[in-house]
Write a protein that binds this DNA or RNA. Structure first.
Lengths: 363, 363
DNA sequence: ATGAAAGCGCTAACAC
DNA sequence: GTGTTAGCGCTTTCAT
């Protein structure tokens, strides 16, 4: 028996405690070592590199681990090894199926490598983003994934000087912090407008979000901007493009916005919503008002949310594979973290597709 | 100047590195102390208990912190203070607005106290739950929040012997691990059945989920069980109660299930779905088939998801305040963690309400 | 194949 | 009000 400091038996102390086996302090590696009659290093090896130790010793240690219900303390391990096993993920919100899909894809890709996702959300608030970022950094994540492309000065500085890989996702920032895996929200807007113009519509509107203080949905705004630009490019008016309410946008946003829009521009024959959720709200409100979709007005959304495919008529929309976005990000991260030293800046556009369904009238 | 070991200037080393200010190793508390000409303890105090230090000193330290962009390492702090500031939250899935609402409410309540939520999801898989639990425990959370009420033997053991508060939420387990904040899913099912019986329906059906291997939605199953029991109690047949597909249940589940149900029991005049998502799918499928809701068939859901209120007709459902559930859990946790020593077991039923809308025919 | 020493970056406890 | 000492539980490194 070694490491003389560790005295006493390792059996259950059996204090006069009335309660059964509950509320037991977690054993440390030292206690496991004692019980197995080995040094702490050997226990450490059995946990992380089992085939570096002799089968006999290994089994003795494994038994001790099981008997004591030993769970290693990763905080201590991290401090020593300088690897926390944390990957930070900052999202605008969790209550959005597409962002949830990103989290999901990322978790899947990271599961094997045994990284833990540290999920945090900003509610589309840039000040909150900074606060969260500081908190996050204190946990020493090995990489940070966040939605591009706009951050305030402090956040940008923190990110730029962070000694870890940064991946901006779900956008295609022109001045990226570092790596990018995403798609162009601006292009998504242009694509939507082009699609509607090509279908022959001439009184085209759109509904997007507005902002309030530091709460802004930059990505949604990009889509609306692209939409407007393409309308102008086609020589059409942007009078029926309205910005209404603040993120997160949902069904009721569309329902209210379409009323406002039709009041202002009654001739509108097609409308794009920055989010499928708004678009679904528009379809439902039209249903209520006896306005036929797509006969009287065509509706197009963005995001390919599940509900869009279920309503009647099903929603024409723009699809981006957010789950793949998460997976790709995970794979990139695993690469980056395995190879030491600064890697080349990675930039990838996962593209987007128009999903044609019945909410837009065919020409 | 004290702590003689700390030599050298704290200014920027200005190595021959070509790159600008990027990729800088994070400074430690020691470097801040040096630059400010104080001991590390003083820096530590400025960070956590600023008014224990003299204003003059404090400002010097704060300047050093800002100049160096110092972000404390919480892993090191945790190790020393035995407080990680982590609260673990285990959910079946993230892509469910109600669970997301729990996470949201919890985050809100915990924000002040500066706890970090460690969110993890199990995909309704009990084996995955155990795996995740082990991983989580290694991070030494100060409390664990998870959806009750069924866990496998290993998970239960880990939870029972964990030296921290455990809160089971969104159910009312008869054999709880420790604290409980939730509602009875069984009662929700009974309430739904009672409601439909009272409205005069006599050919009542329901659609729930089935299971596959270790993937089970226990809470949903409880609702269906309660529904069946209340039907029997009212002397009615449970032939039209079907279990179909596995969790997570969504729109398409309802759409497929209602077809199956009507084929088997064409006389069904009212149907309950374990989830609003399924219920919405049912309404949409009926719309497609020209079956009028509620004239030919009434539909009732559970969960009061936003979309239920937006469709036509809007969905009658059972509401539970999941956001409040999260908040209450957060408040309980803050209490529990502030007061040392074992507190009394806490058990709270947040109840549920029927939301009457138009998808159920009025008698 | 296994162990001993040193130390990761911070804070509790006590001294002054 | 501030500093010193010791140590949290683990892993790195090097010795044997």
């Amino acid at each position: 028996m070694q490491e003389s400091k560790e005295g006493g038996s390792a059996g259950s102390p059996a204090t006069a405690d009335a309660k059964p086996s509950r509320r037991v302090r977690r054993p440390t590696i030292r206690e496991v070592a004692q019980l197995a009659g080995v040094s702490r290093m050997t226990v450490s090896r059995v946990v992380s590199e089992p085939n570096l130790v002799l089968p006999g010793t290994r089994e003795r240690v494994q038994k001790a681990i099981a008997d004591l219900d030993y769970v290693p303390d990763r905080a201590a391990g991290s401090l020593s090894s300088r690897r926390t096993g944390f990957i930070a993920l900052m999202l605008p919100t969790l209550t959005n199926a597409n962002f949830a899909a990103v989290a999901h894809g990322l978790t899947e890709a990271l599961r094997e490598a045994n990284y833990h996702l540290l999920i945090v959300y900003t509610e589309y608030d840039m000040v909150e983003e900074e606060r969260q970022l500081r908190n996050l950094l204190a946990r020493r994540p090995e990489a940070i994934v966040l939605t591009g492309a706009t951050h305030n000065r402090n956040s940008s500085k923190l990110l730029l000087t962070a000694d870890i890989p940064i991946v901006e996702i779900a956008d295609l920032p022109s001045r990226p912090i570092e790596h990018v895996i995403g798609f162009s929200n601006y292009q998504a807007g242009r694509t939507a407008a082009r699609y509607l113009i090509d279908k022959g519509f001439r009184n085209i509107g759109a509904v997007g979000g507005s902002y309030e203080g530091d709460v802004v949905d930059h990505r949604g705004e990009e889509r609306i901007r692209g939409f407007e630009d393409e309308l102008r490019h086609g020589g059409m008016s942007t009078d029926a493009v309205i910005r209404y309410g603040v993120a997160p946008l949902s069904y009721d946003h569309g329902a209210s916005a379409i009323v406002e829009l039709l009041q202002r521009c009654p001739d509108t024959d097609a409308v794009f919503a920055v989010s499928d959720l708004s678009a679904v709200g528009i379809v439902m409100e039209c249903q209520r008002r006896g306005i036929s979709v797509p006969d009287q007005i065509s509706v197009m959304g963005f995001g390919n949310f599940e509900i869009g495919g279920e309503i009647n008529p099903p929603l024409t929309t723009i699809h981006v594979d957010f789950n793949a976005l998460g997976q790709l990000t995970g794979e990139l991260l695993i690469d980056l973290l395995a190879s030491k030293g600064p890697a080349a800046m990675h930039r990838r556009d996962v593209g987007l597709d128009v999903i044609e369904r019945k909410s837009v009238r065919m020409s």
